[in-house]
Design a protein around this nucleic acid. Structure first.
Length: 216
DNA sequence: AACTCGGGGCA
DNA sequence: TGCCCAGAGTT
């Protein structure tokens, strides 16, 4: 059974005290740069993405810029990032759609965003919340892992089920902040390998943490 | 639900 | 060397 709203409120309060300033760490200065950065961030550290986009965004500033070079050149510019061939193709398709259907602008609805190449539910959620201020909880590997460890979601839940559970347990005005705090919690504290259970303020209510403290 | 893409970081 | 990284698309 998922946690109660009361217990969730305590978790949220604790996360807020741990990461009061949690926010999107992908460098961007507009919605178009953000959507490119999030597409690139799939299965790649945001640190590496920022390293690459630092140069990328000086060279490519508009959707047209990505289409005005040979595909091989864009692939080469993304060489340091995993899955770079898929991402280069998707980004070009995405830019083409922006030009032909959205007057070169990044759309704001989930349906429109998810229709773009390389953009799924997670990326759409990030763009909506970070670029346009629309409340959303994007469930990535960190959010999924910590939600399941804390007992907020069941181990067998899909990412969509995890998202729905979080939406039900968290006040809508806190969705975006909570998303970023769960990410920070997963990145810097409740890490995939060697989570910091002994010094975790949530250990007392964490099923996985208590299990780990016994067996390790 | 499982599989594939995929170079880089880290223990 | 093996696991993981702010996933998405296909089968």
């Amino acid at each position: 059974m998922p946690v109660s709203k009361k217990r969730m409120a305590y978790i949220l309060q604790t996360l807020q005290s741990m990461f009061p300033d949690a926010k999107c760490e992908l460098n961007h200065s507009n919605p178009f740069e953000l959507i490119i950065a999030v597409v690139l961030s799939a299965q790649c550290t945001d640190k590496k993405v920022n390293e690459v986009t630092k140069h990328l965004f000086q060279k490519y500033k508009t959707p047209e810029d990505y289409l005005n070079v040979p595909l091989e050149e864009l692939e080469n510019d993304l060489k340091q990032i995993g899955l770079f061939r898929n991402k280069a193709k998707n980004i070009r398709k995405l830019c083409e759609t922006l030009i032909t259907q959205y007057e070169g602008e990044v759309p704001k609805t989930r349906e429109e965003l998810e229709s773009l190449a390389g953009v799924g539910r997670k990326t759409a959620n990030v763009v909506m919340s970070v670029a346009f201020g629309i409340p959303a909880i994007a469930v990535d590997t960190h959010v999924e892992r910590v939600s399941k460890r804390l007992g907020i979601a069941r181990p067998s839940d899909s990412v969509l089920e995890v998202e729905k559970t979080l939406q039900r347990l968290v006040p809508k005005e806190e969705w975006t902040n909570t998303h970023h705090r769960l990410i920070f919690f997963g990145r810097y504290h409740c890490t995939a390998r060697n989570p910091k259970c002994p010094e975790c303020p949530l250990l007392d209510l964490c099923p996985e943490g208590k299990k780990r403290m016994k067996t390790h």
